[in-house]
Every structure is written in structure tokens, then in C-alpha cells.
Amino acid sequence: MIRKSFFTLCLSLNLIFFSSENDQEKFDIVSTSQRPSNSLSVEQALTSQIENLNTKLKALETELKHRIEALESTNNLKSEQLTHCLTTLESKNVQAYWLKQHQHPPTNCREVKDRGYDVSTTYLIKPDFAPNATKVLCDLEKKGGGWTYILNRFDGSQSFDFDLEDYKKGFGKLSGEFWLGLDNVYYLTGYKMNELLVELVDWNDQSVYAYYDRFRVGSEDEGYVMTVSGYNGTAGDSLSYSNNMKFSTKTKDFDKSSTASCAEYFDASWWYNYCMKSLLTGKYLKGEVSQEHKDKIMFWQTFRGTAYSLKEVRMMVRPRVKSDGN
């Protein structure tokens, strides 16, 4: 808009100059060749006309000057605004860089919630003593929030038929079914007492839960032994039977059975005793199963029994807010 006005003013000035030059030429012709008898009147008229043109010219010059000053002022203002924006952006980038370099990632999903986040999704955490940060799935809403998923199954798309190395590292996708990995669970729970929340859903979409106020998984040297106690909930307690048991696989048998390997017989890795009352890593089938698959499925004995393959299971942990020292 300003550029258009500037062009209009320049065009007006050119027209005035052109008009003045033409009038001057007319004056010279009249004064030298065909000077009328009333030449004084003609000269006075032309002089008056020139004076009017000069007045208009000065007015246009003044207006042009004001327009230029306004344009410069606007440009200066925009320049100042741009400088301010760039300075602010640079400052924020520096702050973000500093935070990225110096602020420790949260150690678990409870700390994610404590930092003000409230959307249940994936976050980067670095548990105490863990060698590297890792992505986890957090539930920041359920039962106070701050839960870190260690197991999630809901459609059977991910096989759980793996041996120790895979169970150590973890497998699956955080956007789907997965096992977080025994090493990660150890770093989450091995140095401080955690709570455990197990959620179960059957094929009628009935949902129940089992809550334990003490849960810990030991290191690899300890055989990833599980400590669990303090049950409360609606699902019944089918996990405490495996308390203080090491994690068994087909090649690493730590169960108490003297006749056979539970992991080999039931074709699944788990914390076996003589052998188990729950198997959340078992085969994913639908509802009631035949005798052939009994006890080899994803089941929870006190909810639907050992011959019913559940639809959904979730295991989540979070640090206890208060500890009584036990």
C-alpha cells in the first residue's frame, strides 16, 4: 500500500514538472513572436499560474516527505519487532538447549506426571542406574496416574514365545503389544519399592484389577526374582503364588517342580513356582479353550479360571509415594 502511494506521488510530481515546462514554453512563444497588446495581463496570469503550481509542488513535496518519514518509521518499527522476535527465539532456543543438555529425563512415569504432564502416551525416561534412557508407555490418569507399562496385550498380534535373551531386552512395539524387558523392569523397580497394577478384561468386556503395594524384580544375577505382596482388588490374587520366584524360560529353569520344566511344559516364560496360578505371557486365544490348551493360555486363575483365555491384560508399575521401610 505504501509503495503504491509512493508511486502515485512520484507520478504526480512528474506531471506537474511536465505541465510547468509546457507552460514555460508557451510563455516564451507568446513573449517573442505574438506578444498581444495586453501582454502585462498575460504575464500576470502566467505568473499567478506558476505560483499556484509552485504551491502545489511544495504541498506535494511536504506530503511526500511525511509519507517517506512514515514509511521509515514503519520499517524501523517492523525492524525493532523483528529484532525482538529473533532475540526472544534465540533466548528460547538457548533455554531449550540448556534443558536438553543439563536437565535429567524423568526416572519413571510418576515423575513424568509430577513434572506437569497429563497425557497418557510414550515418554523418554532414564531410571536411576540405568545405562541408557528408554521410551516407555505411561498411564498418567488411572488410579492417580504415573504408571509405567511393563506388559500390554489386547489383540494377539505379538508373539510371546521367546527365550531369556528376548525377555531380557524386551520385544514388541509401544504402540501395540509388548514386553518392556526384564532389565528395564529391574532398573525401574530394583532400587526402590514399587506398586503393581494388573488389569484384566474378558471377552464380555468385564474389567477387573489386582493391585499389589509391594513389587520388585531383581537383577540378572538374582535371576530376575520377583517380590510381590499386599494384594487388593477385584480380580483375586493369582500372582502372590509366584512370590520370591526367579524368572524361568525353556533354557533357564528356576521353578520348584522336580518332575518337569514348567516353562517347557506350558510353552511360556514366567515366574514359576509349582508351577503357577497365572500366566500372562501364555498363548493368546479367545475365551473358553479345550483341554489341550488349558493352563497354556493367557489366564488368571481367580478370574475366569485356567481354561479361559483373556481378551486384554496389562501390568503397570510405579514407585510407592510413601514407604514404611519394609
Rank of each mutant, 00 (worst) to 15 (best):
Arg3Thr: 11
Phe6Val: 09
Leu9Gln: 14
Leu13Arg: 08
Phe18Ala: 14
Lys26Ile: 13
Phe27Ile: 06
Asp28Phe: 08
Val30Ile: 14
Ser31Thr: 10
Gln34Pro: 12
Ser41Gly: 13
Ser41Ile: 09
Glu43Pro: 05
Ala45Arg: 12
Ile50Asn: 14
Asn52Thr: 15
Thr55Glu: 05
Lys56Val: 09
Ala59Asp: 15
Leu64Met: 15
Lys65Leu: 14
Glu69Ala: 13
Thr74Asn: 06
Asn75Ser: 12
His84Phe: 08
His84Glu: 14
Cys85Pro: 01
Val94Leu: 13
Gln95Tyr: 09
Ala96Phe: 04
Trp98Met: 05
Lys100Trp: 02
Gln101Thr: 11
His102Trp: 14
Pro105Ala: 14
Pro106Arg: 08
Cys109Met: 02
Glu111Trp: 02
Asp114Glu: 09
Tyr117Lys: 05
Asp118Tyr: 13
Ser120Trp: 03
Leu124Glu: 08
Lys126Met: 10
Asp128Lys: 12
Phe129Trp: 02
Ala130Ser: 12
Val136Cys: 05
Leu137Tyr: 04
Leu140Met: 09
Leu140Asp: 01
Lys143Glu: 02
Lys143Val: 00
Gly145Glu: 06
Gly145Asp: 02
Tyr149Lys: 06
Ser157Met: 06
Asp163Tyr: 04
Glu165Tyr: 13
Asp166Phe: 15
Gly170Glu: 05
Phe171Leu: 09
Lys173Ser: 13
Leu174Glu: 01
Leu188Glu: 03
Gly190Gln: 02
Lys192Gly: 15
Asn194Phe: 10
Leu196Val: 00
Leu196Ser: 00
Asn204Met: 11
Asn204Leu: 10
Tyr209His: 12
Tyr211Cys: 00
Tyr211His: 07
Arg214Ile: 08
Phe215Cys: 01
Val217Met: 03
Thr227Gly: 12
Ser229Cys: 03
Ala235Thr: 02
Gly236Ile: 00
Tyr241Asp: 05
Asn243Ile: 07
Asn243Asp: 15
Met245Lys: 10
Phe247Cys: 00
Phe247Ser: 12
Thr249Lys: 12
Thr251Pro: 11
Lys256Leu: 04
Ala263His: 02
Ser269Gln: 02
Lys277His: 07
Leu280Arg: 03
Thr281Gln: 08
Tyr284Lys: 12
Glu288Phe: 03
Asp295Ile: 07
Lys296Ser: 12
Phe299Glu: 02
Arg304Ser: 14
Glu312Ser: 13
Val313Arg: 00
Arg314Met: 07
Pro319Arg: 05
Arg320Lys: 05
Asp324Trp: 09
